[in-house]
Design a binder for these strands. Structure first.
Lengths: 179, 179
DNA sequence: TCTTGATTATCTATCAGAAGATAGATAAAA
DNA sequence: TTTTATCTATCTTCTGATAGATAATCAAGA
């Protein structure tokens, strides 16, 4: 069933967010899904296939979430707030999947690295368009969106150490100060 | 000799920056230093000891570099520029050691996590003091330094995927725009 | 409807290699 | 003669991966 495959992807996503690609093993994954590790290979012949599919699903879901924000919130400030909530959902204990993969990108195949690049490019583009609706405040939308995306990924990374929302909260305050 | 131990720490530091803690093995480390893996255990009984000592050395060296910046540059803008250069030195191919460890912090012992926390706290404090010397620009020094530290870590993380300095450069432009 | 054959989803069993770690020998240096 | 720095040899556990058996489901043709 597609149910088992989805279950595996869901466990794998969380495990990678918590422990990284090298912290995910077929055995532990299988045990958590109550099947044998050989059965995991039935759905994902190689580990790289699993990583790729997990990344595809995560990024697609993230883009859909951005789209939903666009529909539900019409004002830039609300949209930025909603994005912050999206990031905060990972804490405590998890990092952005794409941030984690970026840290380990030396060990990824090119297909997956392309998904990663696209994730950052698209998310930055979304941010830029939101910022373009704000009253001008010195920095260009292109530049500011890059800095904001960087700070979101970095804040989530550092907040993971203590499980708090310290840095993310500062980023949020900063964003609110832009208006 | 202390030479061998330092050599091991140097190789381990670079390897963790490139591949993470789980991407570092005693065997590969030993091979690169032309000794046997059992000899690595002579210097570092457990892998956790190696990680701890490497982190200690890295953070100490980083704080010394900040101190040197304080001595060589007297103006805030120069100091921030020098910090940016410190971060850029990692590219292409490497991430900030503490950023990498933060991503994998679920698998670290408390001693090493404490070093990590101190690294971020101290670096943020340094940034805050530099920013306090700048003309006020809306945000508080405490808040802005948090955001800048986040964006530096995040920018280095994302730039690692393509090996370019795209995001770090945008952070640098943003910093220059603060004055 | 019954039979047959393919497809799907799992299992058992096993492999080769890598991992961290330890015991104990050895040789040089202090 | 004790300490320092290395080695050989080995252990256990974990890793990704493969081969082949086994049911169960399902579709098609007689």
């Amino acid at each position: 069933m597609a149910q088992t495959k989805n279950h595996l992807k869901s466990i794998a996503t969380r495990t990678i967010q918590e422990k990284g690609v090298n912290g995910l093993s077929f055995r532990d994954l299988a045990a958590e899904a109550n099947i044998k590790s050989s059965s995991v290979h039935y759905y994902f012949p190689q580990k790289a296939d699993l990583i790729y599919e997990v990344t595809k699903e995560y990024t697609d879901a993230f883009f859909q979430a951005l789209h939903k924000i666009d529909q539900l919130s019409k004002h830039s400030v609300e949209r930025l707030d909603a994005l912050l909530d999206l990031y905060k959902k990972n804490l405590p204990g998890r990092f952005c999947l794409c941030g984690m993969l970026a840290a380990e990108s030396n060990q990824l195949d090119n297909k997956t690295k392309d998904l990663l690049s696209r994730f950052f490019v698209k998310t930055q583009k979304w941010l830029r368009e939101v910022i373009e609706d704000l009253p001008s405040n010195g920095a260009t939308p292109a530049g500011l969106s890059s800095v904001l995306l960087s700070s979101l990924e970095g804040a989530l990374l550092m907040d993971g150490v203590k499980g708090k929302e310290k840095y993310l909260t500062e980023v949020q305050k900063f964003i609110r100060g832009l208006v």
